[in-house]
Amino acid sequence: MSTATRSRICPRTGLYLVPARGQDGWRVAQERYTRSGGILAVGVNEHVGPLPADVPDRRGRFDTIGRTVYFADRARTAFAEVLQDFRGARVALQADADAIGMSVNEYIANIRDQATANGREQPWAVSVEWQMNRCLHRVAMPARGWWVQIDHKATLNRLGLDLAEPLRQAGVPLLTLSGTTGENRAVTTLLSQHVRSQVLFDGSLPLGIQFTSKTGYGTCWAWWDRRADDGLMPGMNDPKTIEDLNVDGEAFRAVTTDWKLDVLPGKPRY
Rank of each mutant, 00 (worst) to 15 (best):
L232C: 04
D244N: 14
R196P: 01
I242L: 15
S197A: 15
P206S: 11
Y217M: 05
T241R: 13
V199K: 08
M233C: 05
G231V: 13
L191M: 07
L190A: 09
I209S: 07
D238L: 08
P239V: 13
W221V: 09
V199F: 00
L205Y: 01
V199G: 01
L191Q: 07
D230T: 08
A222S: 09
H194G: 02
Q210A: 14
S192P: 04
P234F: 10
H194D: 14
R196M: 04
Q193T: 04
D229A: 10
G216H: 12
I209L: 15
V199E: 15
C220G: 05
V199P: 01
P239L: 11
T189G: 08
Q193S: 12
G235V: 09
A222K: 13
W223P: 02
G208V: 07
A186V: 06
T188A: 04
I209G: 01
A228S: 14
L245K: 15
L200F: 06
P234E: 02
W221T: 11
Q198N: 02
P239Y: 09
P206N: 13
T188C: 04
T189W: 10
I209D: 01
L200N: 06
C220L: 04
T219G: 00
V199I: 15
A228K: 10
F201I: 02
R185P: 05
T215G: 06
M236R: 03
A186P: 06
G231Y: 12
D230I: 01
T241C: 13
Q193M: 04
T189P: 08
C220E: 12
H194R: 15
N237M: 07
A228Q: 12
N184R: 11
T188P: 08
I242Y: 05
L232Q: 14
G235H: 04
D238N: 04
Q198I: 00
G231W: 09
N246P: 07
F211E: 03
M236W: 02
T215P: 00
G218T: 12
L190T: 14
S192E: 10
T212D: 12
N246V: 05
Q193D: 15
L245F: 08
A222C: 02
K214G: 00
P239D: 05
D238A: 10
T215H: 13
M233K: 07
K240V: 15
D229L: 06
N237Q: 13
L207C: 02
